[in-house]
Write a protein that binds this DNA or RNA. Structure first.
Length: 568
RNA sequence: GCCCCUAUAGCUCAGUGGAUAGAGCAAUGGUCUCCGAAACCAUUUGCGGAGGUUCGAUUCCUCCUAGGGGUACCA
């Protein structure tokens, strides 16, 4: 339990005994006062008015009078219908900071997920297509969730469910057979494959028979045709080489690189399983699971030519994951445009009578929007992630040259800052929001950004370097400034925010908390001197506070996949 | 048509059913002989509309409007 949770529980207990309510009920109502009110917790008495048949202010006055100071609680005062409780700032600081410094890199982590496995499907780019800024979202959100669940003690299996199968390969093979150029494929594989893909979609408008060719090629691929298979392998290898370069830049890793093709030899058994349950029906020559009673279009398992689809392979993958890992949860970090697909998939699992269908969760995120509409691979309307990262790193290097030309290892720092800016930009808001692609915002390093957090961390690091060794027993009771209490509170709440982020599959809960902390610390820094010359004990206490801030920023940034820098 | 998501300041977004709705960007003006000015301080503007539930709604429910997405052989 975090020190902050313990403090909250103590306040709730005090209020419970004063009001006669159960602690759990008090805890549920407990809130905090607005900025103008000098108190740490607030207890609203409005719900009691009915049962007690008294006005809320009168109830608040009675409860406040019964609260005795002692322990963490210093005083209680009624104001309107609220009981405002003040806690001892020194004791609060002592507990919170001591815990943060004692636990260090483990602060915020727990073992509550021990013996539970969580499978997370993330990134999952389509082979033979460019790694765009759209894939970045799944990649960084998924990676952050992997880190968050690991921090809570879960066993996590991160799966890159590569889009390495499907009709798109029929299209690519068709296009390559028709217009392919070996030299271009060797020299600039992904961009060239994208061009072929775009050309295919442009040509198919006037030559619809190309679609039939594509379907035939995919069918041949599924049936193990050597020619099709060889081209597929080549496209896949070339793509993976490019993807790995991007993953290296981002520092992203996976436990499994199993794509859709991996499940190819399990598809017949999967379809058979659905048929055995009597769920599969022939409709318009295709094999489907009728979902009409649930208000959804049918889930297609086989096309008219018996080739499989996305849903078939996802179904096989779900069974495979359950058999392999007996997951506690099976998460899919995939864009919100695929919500219906997952609703269908989970419904089919439910109809198959799998109790673990309820443990499968789609974790959707908003789409990247351009000023002129949605991104479209088919029209070649994409922004390459490598280009974005390169620009960000270049800009970071410019700023370093200007602000800190003497800095050692400027190249590494520029990389960390530039990439940190792009990564954090994708994690700072609630993931469901669509993102308008905007170079200015992406390349902004001021305000609520990754570099701002890195800067605050580096600033704290700089102070601690100058200070030398820390005292092991600083007088925490000296930390009574309101700006200090604000920082302490945020340090103390950090572990709870990690849990909330896991509960809601929402990395932004960590991001927003780090921004709040950095803001509070920078405000504090600008109002009070830490490295005091004339008050050694207070200096020690403030340094301990600074060290705890640095620790939280470091741990939080690490969860988000952003490098915490000592200097920048 | 039907289904899902979103709507808070000029822009991008936070916001636990509670007391005066907060940040950043942009703009303007301040703060470095002082621990890192990628920082801090100050100034201005707002909960899409209408009902409902509630002691109390930006928050929950319904309807409407707007934007985005999806809607059988792509993923």
């Amino acid at each position: 339990m975090s020190a902050f949770s313990e403090i909250r529980a103590e306040v709730a207990t005090a209020l419970a005994s004063a009001s006669g309510l159960p602690v759990s009920e008090v805890d549920g109502l407990l809130t905090w006062p607005p900025p103008g009110v000098a108190a740490d917790f607030a207890f609203p008495c409005f719900t009691l008015a009915k049962t007690l048949r008294k006005a809320p202010p009168a109830i608040a006055t009675e409860i406040a009078a019964k609260i005795t100071s002692g322990g963490i609680v210093v005083s209680a005062a009624a104001l309107g219908g609220y009981v405002n409780v003040r806690t001892d700032p020194g004791k609060q600081s002592a507990r919170v900071i001591a815990q943060a410094l004692r636990e260090g890199d483990r602060y915020g982590m727990s073992t509550e997920g021990a013996a539970k496995t969580i499978v997370i499907d993330y990134s999952s780019p389509n082979i033979a297509k460019p790694f765009s800024i759209a894939h970045l979202r799944s990649t960084v959100i998924g990676r952050a969730l992997v880190n968050v669940y690991r921090a809570l003690g879960y066993t996590v299996v991160g799966v890159n469910h590569l889009g390495d199968w499907g009709t798109q390969f029929g299209k690519l093979i068709t296009a390559f057979k028709a217009w392919g150029d070996e030299k271009q494929l060797e020299e600039r594989p992904i961009r060239y494959l994208l061009e072929l893909y775009v050309k295919f979609h442009a040509e198919v408008k006037s030559k619809p028979e190309l679609d039939d060719d594509a379907r035939r090629w995919f069918k041949r691929l599924e049936d193990g045709d050597a020619d099709a298979r060889a081209l597929w392998q080549r496209f896949r290898d070339l793509s993976l080489t490019e993807f790995n370069r991007v993953y290296d830049m981002l520092g992203v890793t996976f436990d499994r690189f199993s794509g859709e093709a991996f499940y190819n030899d399990r598809l017949d058994a999967t379809v058979a399983r659905v048929e055995a349950k009597g769920l599969a029906t022939r409709s318009q020559d295709a094999l489907v699971v009728d979902l009409e009673p649930y208000g959804m279009p049918p889930c297609l398992l086989r096309k008219a030519d018996d080739a499989t689809l996305y849903a078939t392979r996802d179904l096989a993958a779900a069974y495979y994951r359950h058999e392999q890992f007996q997951f506690h949860k099976n998460l899919y970090v995939v864009g919100s445009d695929q919500t219906l697909h997952f609703r269908q998939l989970f419904k089919v699992l439910e109809l198959l009578g799998e109790p673990w269908a309820a443990s499968c969760v789609h974790v959707p995120f908003g789409l990247i929007q351009f000023k002129d509409g949605k991104m479209s691979t088919r029209e070649g309307k994409v922004v390459f992630l490598e280009e974005v990262l390169a620009k960000a790193v270049e800009l970071a290097a410019d700023i370093i040259r200007e602000k800190n030309p003497e800095l050692a290892s400027r190249g590494d720092v520029a990389k960390a800052v530039g990439i940190g800016a792009v990564v954090f930009n994708d994690l700072k808001n609630r993931r469901i929001k669509d993102v308008l692609f905007d170079w200015n915002e992406l390349l902004n390093f001021d305000g609520k950004t990754g570099p701002y957090l890195q800067y605050t961390h580096a600033r704290a690091a700089s102070i601690l370097r100058k200070a030398g060794a820390l005292s092991s027993t600083p007088p925490y009771e000296r930390l009574v400034e309101p700006e200090e209490s604000a920082v302490v509170k945020l340090v103390g709440q950090f572990p709870d925010r990690i849990r909330a982020a896991a509960d809601e599959y929402e990395p932004s809960m960590v991001s927003q908390h780090l921004l709040d902390l950095a803001e509070a610390f920078n405000t504090y820094y600008n109002h009070h001197r830490i490295l005091l010359d004339d008050d050694a004990p207070l200096r020690e206490a403030r340094l301990a506070l600074t060290a705890s801030v640095k620790q939280v920023l470091k741990n939080g940034l690490s969860l988000l996949g952003v490098v915490a820098l000592e200097e920048m």
